[in-house]
Amino acid sequence: MNWKLIFSRDSLHLWIVSFLVIAGGSVFVWGRGQLVPETYGEQGPYRAAALEKLASKPSVLVSDSVCLKCHADVGEERAESLHKAVSCNHCHGLGREHVVQAQKAAKTPGLTIDSAKEWDGNFMTHIDLFITQDRATCLVCHESMVGMPEGFKQINVAEHLEDMGAEEVKGRDVCFECHMGHDTAP
């Protein structure tokens, strides 16, 4: 080692460069540690904590399997019908509140569950359970419309009533006079 060279006047440049490189590198490493979020890169180029956060969101829509735990008889009836693919919430609302109450009632004997409400005609607003015989419940799927697959049962209400020999019926529950939802006779 040539100490004379290292401490010579010319080597000042070397010291300056070394200092800049080390100082700059340290700032870079420190800054990167500050800017890269925690758990980033554990599973890939993203925050692994986001997966847990997204997966922990509670479910809103009640699955049929939850309904059928108590209403197995309806499930069996429906399984035989043409409506076997139609989920409970399609006609009865989301039933979230109903399930919460039922779970409470199962733990606390004597607690009663609210009876189902009358439908107000708005599919959008119902978190609650409802029982309806409104024709709109049927016609939201079955009203004849351009675009439907040919095998699907399409109804033009006026024509259908005429074919069946019915007098003009304007009642909301007209469909349910002949058809039932759970065991649909054609």
């Binding site: 699955s63 693919a85 989920s87 799927c141």
Partner: peptide, 22 residues
């Protein structure tokens, strides 16, 4: 997200659950 929160606990996505014709 294919209802990531539902499918990770073995439920179907909401739209699949709601579809009346599969």
């Amino acid at each position: 997200t294919w209802c990531y929160h539902r499918v990770m606990r073995n439920e179907k996505p909401a739209c699949v659950e709601a579809c009346p014709v599969d």
